[in-house]
C-alpha cells in the first residue's frame, strides 16, 4: 500500500493540471468570497440583517470554486485513461482495489488539505470587507475549515469513483456539475415536498451544513455520513468497473 500511495502522490504532483486547478480554486474562492462579503456589508448598511461569520462565506464561494477542485480529482483518474498511462499504472500496481484505494486516499487527502487552505483564503478575503457584519469566533473559523475540508474530501471520493466508472473527463465533469449544481436547483424549484427532501441529501446540501456548521436539515455528523455514503457508492462503482472491464 505504501508503494501505491507514493506512486499516486508522485503522479498527482508531476502533471501541471494539479497545481493549476488548485490555484484556480484559490482565486475563485478568494474572489467570490470578497464579492459575497462586500454584498453582505452593503446590505447591512441598508438596514438588512445579513450578519454571518465571515468563514461561512466560503460555502457560497465554493459553489464555483468546487468545480476547480472536482477537475483536479477527475483528471487524476481520467487523465490516465486519456493518455493510456492506466496500463502502466496497472502493470505497476495490478491489484485493482489497492490501486483505487491508493488513488482515492491521495486525492482525498490532498483535496481535504486544500479545503483547509481554501477556507482560510476565503475567510481572509471576506472578513476585512465585512467588518462587524462578518465578526466570527475562533470556533467558527475552525469548524468551517474542517467542514470545508470534509466537503472537498467527499467530492474527491465522488469524482475519483465516478471517473473510474466513466473513464472520460468530459463525462465525469458533466455528471459532477449536474449533481452539484443542476439537480439541487431542480429539487428546490419544483415545490414538491418529497423532491425537496431528496435535495437535502445531495452532496451539496450536506456540504453547506458542514461548511456553515448548520443544524438544518441535519447537523454536521449526519452531513458527514451523507457525503461519505455518496463517496463510497461512487468508489464501489469504480471498483466493480475496474474488475469487470479490461483496461
Amino acid at each position: 500500500m505504501k508503494g501505491a500511495l507514493a506512486f499516486e502522490w508522485t503522479k498527482l504532483w508531476t502533471v501541471r493540471s494539479t497545481p493549476w486547478s488548485l490555484f484556480a480554486a484559490a482565486l475563485l474562492t478568494a474572489g467570490v468570497a470578497a464579492v459575497v462579503g462586500v454584498s453582505a456589508q452593503a446590505s447591512a448598511e441598508n438596514g438588512f440583517d445579513t450578519a454571518r461569520p465571515a468563514p461561512h462565506t466560503v460555502a457560497d464561494a465554493l459553489t464555483l470554486g468546487q468545480l476547480a477542485v472536482v477537475v483536479t480529482a477527475t483528471l487524476a483518474v481520467t487523465g490516465e485513461y486519456a493518455s493510456g498511462s492506466i496500463r502502466t499504472t496497472l502493470h505497476s500496481v495490478p491489484a485493482r482495489g489497492r490501486m483505487l484505494i491508493g488513488k482515492a486516499a491521495v486525492v482525498t487527502g490532498v483535496l481535504g488539505a486544500a479545503g483547509l487552505c481554501l477556507s482560510a483564503i476565503g475567510t481572509a478575503s471576506a472578513a476585512p470587507l465585512m467588518g462587524e457584519t462578518g465578526s466570527f469566533t475562533a470556533a467558527d473559523a475552525v469548524g468551517s475549515a474542517l467542514g470545508t475540508a470534509a466537503y472537498l474530501a467527499g467530492l474527491a471520493l465522488l469524482a475519483t469513483g465516478l471517473g473510474t466508472v466513466l473513464r472520460s473527463a468530459a463525462g465525469t465533469i458533466t455528471a459532477m456539475i449536474m449533481l452539484l449544481m443542476a439537480v439541487p436547483q431542480l429539487t428546490q424549484i419544483a415545490g414538491i415536498d418529497w423532491l425537496e427532501t431528496v435535495g437535502d441529501f445531495l452532496p451539496s446540501a450536506a456540504g453547506v451544513v458542514l461548511m456553515t456548521q448548520d443544524t438544518d436539515p441535519y447537523g454536521t455528523g449526519p452531513a458527514a455520513l451523507v457525503l461519505a455514503a455518496w463517496g463510497l457508492a461512487a468508489l464501489t462503482g469504480g471498483y466493480v468497473t475496474l474488475r469487470r472491464r479490461d483496461a
Partner: peptide, 11 residues
C-alpha cells in the same frame, strides 16, 4: 506493450 502509455504532461 504500448509505447504511448505515459502521461504526455509528465517528464
Amino acid at each position: 506493450l504500448d509505447a504511448r502509455a505515459a502521461h504526455p504532461g509528465r517528464t
